[in-house]
């Protein structure tokens, strides 16, 4: 082996060229250790307190799949879905009305939103329930006629109360979404000869959905919890059923925890659904679709122990 060969050593002799990586002692964040210990200690204390309390935890699994509870869960879901449906349809309508050039329709929409956003939903529910004081009968001519009190069932009251209130919030969300779409989109669509309604349906709304979906998911979760207010007007949804069972079974607090667990479970399921919906409407807006939760978990498991970075 000559000196000459040494100088032009092959790739197997030298590691790939590049600057030497910095090896430095990282800064120690003592504050972080202290705050982590304090937080864990407090958490343990809270858990301990609950475990020592006079709560019969065993009652919760006993009643978790009780047919009355399941029935209440289904009614809560029904109420959530139908109220949101009324809310979304009403909201889109109100948003289009508010953005319309007709001063009458836009004022009416403004007034509606002002009224329903400005009064508590609990008060609205009770008012709907007691509207029999104003209207004794409901009379739709030859189609339908009945006493108000038998027409206004708890379910209908709940749907009207929650749905009409929700429409006011959804209207603002939809309006923000519609306004977020670049005006050039409408112009391009009009220049191609598309009508106002086609432009709205094919071009503007699909793009507005990106802005509308996240706050709407928020609203769904909010609605799921707000349905518990309906307990005051005798509709046997989850919260009401849990209270009823609590009173008869002698485990009232346990049943509240049970209801809370069910609400948490349902909102978690909705959150996952929302994620996939957002992913669907993100198509075209970024070069690559965001990862699904499973892909994220996989990626973070693979990168455990490695420095962060690279994964955006």
């Amino acid at each position: 082996m000559t000196l000459d060969i040494d100088k032009t050593a092959g790739p197997e002799d030298t590691p790939p060229a590049g600057p030497e990586a910095i090896k430095a002692i990282p800064v120690r964040h003592y504050g972080r250790y202290v705050s982590a210990v304090v937080a864990i200690a407090l958490l343990v204390a809270v858990i301990y307190a609950f475990s020592q309390g006079k709560i019969n935890w065993g009652a919760i699994p006993d009643y978790f799949f009780d047919h009355r509870i399941i029935d209440g869960v289904l009614k809560t879901l029904l109420l959530t879905v139908l109220s949101m449906l009324i809310g979304v349809v009403g909201g889109v309508l109100l948003a289009v009305m508010r953005l319309s050039k007709n001063p009458v329709t836009s004022s009416i929409a403004w007034f509606y939103i002002w009224f329903f956003r400005g009064t508590p939903v609990l008060v609205q529910l009770v008012v709907w329930f007691n509207l029999g004081l104003v209207f004794t009968y409901i009379n739709l001519g030859p189609i339908y006629k009945d006493y108000w009190s038998s027409f206004m069932t708890p379910l209908l009251t709940a749907l009207l109360g929650l749905g009409l209130n929700e429409a006011a919030y959804m209207a603002e969300i939809c309006r923000a979404g519609l306004l977020s779409v670049d005006e050039g989109q409408t112009e391009a669509s009009h220049a191609l000869g598309m009508s106002h309604s086609k432009t709205l349906r094919r071009i503007v709304i699909p793009q507005a959905m990106r802005v509308i979906v996240p706050p709407t998911g928020n609203e769904v979760i909010n609605m799921l919890k707000t349905t518990s207010l309906v307990a005051v007007i005798q509709y046997s949804e989850l919260f009401r059923v849990a209270q009823d069972i609590g009173q008869t079974s002698g485990a009232p607090a346990e049943m509240l925890f049970l209801a809370a667990a069910w609400y948490l479970l349902l909102t978690s399921v909705f959150s996952v659904g929302q994620y996939y919906l957002e992913r669907y409407y993100a198509r075209g807006s970024s070069r690559t679709l965001p990862a699904t939760p499973f892909q994220k978990i996989k990626a973070s498991l693979l990168s455990l122990g490695r420095p962060r970075g690279g994964m955006a």
């Binding site: 670049d182 050039g184 989109q185 112009e187 391009a188 669509s189 009009h190 220049a191 191609l192 000869g193 598309m194 009508s195 071009i203 699909p206 793009q207 409407y281 198509r283 075209g284 807006s285």
Partner: peptide, 20 residues
Amino acid sequence: ALKRRDIGMVFQRFNLFPHM
């Protein structure tokens, strides 16, 4: 809208529909 069918327009900022 009917008359605009016959007139094509190209914009400075393209205005392609991003969701398609």
